[in-house]
């Protein structure tokens, strides 16, 4: 049996209660949105891109604790990263939430999401904000949706 505190680690509960960078970013030059048509959750991500560096990033939206905390952790972890760096972090995160394996030590606070893999129905919640952010950074105008293959 899974333990709920595996899923809802204190880091997650904290980011859910006090999401970081939860605002509209006035200096943003890219905006991405994501939605989960199965549950109606919706997220908007604001990115200030300088060259290929994510100089600043914020988000707003409605969602469960997992999606909110994961989006909040996304902003903290992607701020200052280049797009390739951001993609590498997301690849590790994706592997972690689908397999439970924490690939490398610098996952730091993101490791709090490792428990998600025991709850397959919730993997999409953990990846939605990241999709929206990466799409925005890469200039993909299409909203991220949980219903496309390869989330």
């Amino acid at each position: 049996m899974q333990d709920l505190t595996d899923l809802y680690q204190s880091v997650i509960l904290d980011h859910n209660r006090r999401p970081r960078n939860y605002s509209v970013l006035p200096t943003a030059n890219r905006v991405g949105s994501g939605n989960n048509p199965m549950c109606g959750d919706q997220i908007t991500v604001y990115v200030k891109l300088e060259g290929d560096r994510i100089a600043d990033v914020s988000f707003q939206g409605s969602g469960c604790a997992i999606s909110k905390a994961s989006a909040s952790l996304m902003t903290v972890n992607l701020k200052g990263k280049t797009i390739p760096e951001a993609e590498a972090i997301y690849a590790d995160l994706h592997k972690m939430v689908t397999t439970g394996k924490v690939e490398d030590d610098n996952m730091s606070d993101l490791a709090a999401l490792a428990g998600v893999y025991q709850f397959p129905a919730r993997i999409k919640c953990a990846t939605l904000g990241w999709h929206a952010a990466l799409n925005a950074a890469k200039g993909d105008e299409k909203p991220a949706t949980t219903e496309l293959p390869g989330d």
Binding site: L4, Y8, C39, S62, C64, A65, I66, F119, R122, C125
Partner: peptide
Amino acid sequence: HAHDVVTM
């Protein structure tokens, strides 16, 4: 959120 209610 409702999904957290349902999971718990």
